[in-house]
Amino acid sequence: MSNLLNLACRGLVSRLSPFTTHPQKNVIMPFTCRCLNTTSNRQANQSPNNDYVVSKVYHNRNPRNLEKLALARKRLGWKLTAPRKDYYHKLIFTLSNRHTEARLEHFSGFTVLTVSTREWAVRDQLYSCTDVAASENVGRVMAQRCLESGISEVYFDESELDAASDKVSVFMQAFKDQGISLTEPDMVEGHYQPGINYDGYNRYAEAKAWQDDYQKE
C-alpha cells in the first residue's frame, strides 16, 4: 500500500490556502478528505468517547467507494477507440446458439457477476434458453443481482449488439424497470489551479519534507 501511496503522491502539490487559519485538517486516501468542522449539542464530559481522537487522515478502504461517487479515475482510451474503455463496470450480453448469458465486468478485467441460462435456477422456469423471454428474464435476474451487490449504474454498449432487436431491447428494458441506469455518470475532476505550495502541508496534512528540488520528485 505504501508503494501505491507514494506513487499517487508523485508530483504532489498541496492546495491548502495559506490564508486559512489552520491547515491541519482531517484527510482521507484514496478517498482523501479533510475534516471541516464538528457539531455538538451537549457538553460531552461524561461521554465514553471523550478522549476519542478522529484521525486527521481518514482512509476509506472500500475499493468501490470512489467508483460509486464517480471520483475514481476512468481509463480514457483513445478518442475513437472501439469498444470504449471509459467505464467502471461494463454489462456484457452474449447470445449464443444454445444459451443466453449476461455478465458484469470491472474495467480491471474481473468478472463480478454472471447470469446464464446454464444455471438451473434460471433455466428451470424457462421454456427455451434462447428466446426473447429468456433474454428478458436473464436481464431481470441480472438487474436483481446488480442491486443486491450495490451496483446501480453500469455501462452497456448498445453499438456492440443490434439494439433494435427484440432480445436486446427487452434485456435493456428489464434493467430500466429495476431502476438501474445503463450509463455511468461522468468522472468528476478536480478544479485546476496553478502554483506549487513549496512549504505548506500536503494533502495528507503532513508537513513537507525538505528537498533540494521539489520538481524532481
Binding site: C33, N49, Q215
Partner: peptide
C-alpha cells in the same frame, strides 16, 4: 453521534489528487 456516542460529529471533505507537475 450526539445521543448515542455522545461525541461531536466529524465531517469530511474530499480533496482531489493534485495535478501532476513535470519538471520545469
Amino acid at each position: 453521534f450526539h445521543n448515542i456516542l455522545d461525541m461531536p460529529e466529524p465531517k469530511f471533505e474530499f480533496i482531489h489528487p493534485p495535478a501532476y507537475v513535470p519538471e520545469q
